[in-house]
Amino acid sequence: MGNIVGKSDSPKKGWIVETKLEAKMVEAMKKRASGGSAIKSFNSIILKFPKIDESLRNCKVIFEQFDEDSNGAIDHAELKKCFNKLEISFTEEEINDLFVACDINENMGMKFNEFIVLLCLVYLLKEDPIALHAKSHMGMPNLEATFETLVDAFVFLDKNKDGYVSKSEMVQAINETTSGECSSGQIAMKRFEEMDWDKNGMVNFKEFLFAFTRWVGIGDIEDEEEGEANV
Rank of each mutant, 00 (worst) to 15 (best):
N96I: 02
Q172A: 15
E22H: 15
N200G: 06
V117F: 02
G201M: 04
S10M: 08
A28G: 10
G201V: 07
T177A: 09
K85T: 13
K24H: 11
G72V: 01
C102Q: 03
V100M: 06
I218H: 04
E114S: 06
Y164R: 03
S41F: 04
V171P: 01
N43H: 13
F66E: 00
F147M: 09
N113H: 13
I74E: 00
L119T: 10
E169L: 01
M108E: 14
N84M: 12
A77D: 13
E106G: 11
M140S: 13
E22N: 14
G14C: 09
A33W: 00
V231C: 11
I187G: 05
C182P: 12
M138S: 13
K159P: 03
T149K: 08
E18D: 15
S89V: 07
K31M: 08
H76L: 07
D152Q: 04
N58S: 14
N71R: 06
N3E: 14
P129W: 05
V100Q: 08
M189S: 15
C59L: 14
H76M: 08
S37F: 03
M1S: 15
A77L: 07
C102S: 07
S166F: 05
F192T: 02
Q65W: 06
P129F: 02
F83W: 08
D9M: 07
F99A: 03
K206Y: 03
K126D: 13
D198E: 10
D103A: 11
M110D: 04
T19A: 07
S8Q: 12
N71G: 08
G35I: 07
T146Y: 01
S183D: 09
G227R: 09
M138W: 04
S179M: 10
A73F: 04
L47Y: 13
C59P: 03
P141D: 12
S37A: 08
E228Q: 13
N58T: 11
K126V: 12
M170G: 02
A229H: 01
V122W: 02
I174G: 00
A188P: 06
S183L: 08
Q172G: 10
E78Q: 06
F208V: 07
A188C: 07
I52S: 12
A229M: 03
L209A: 03
E68F: 06
G201W: 03
F115E: 01
S179C: 10
I74K: 00
H137E: 14
V117W: 02
S89Q: 10
L21A: 03
M140D: 14
I16K: 09
L86G: 00
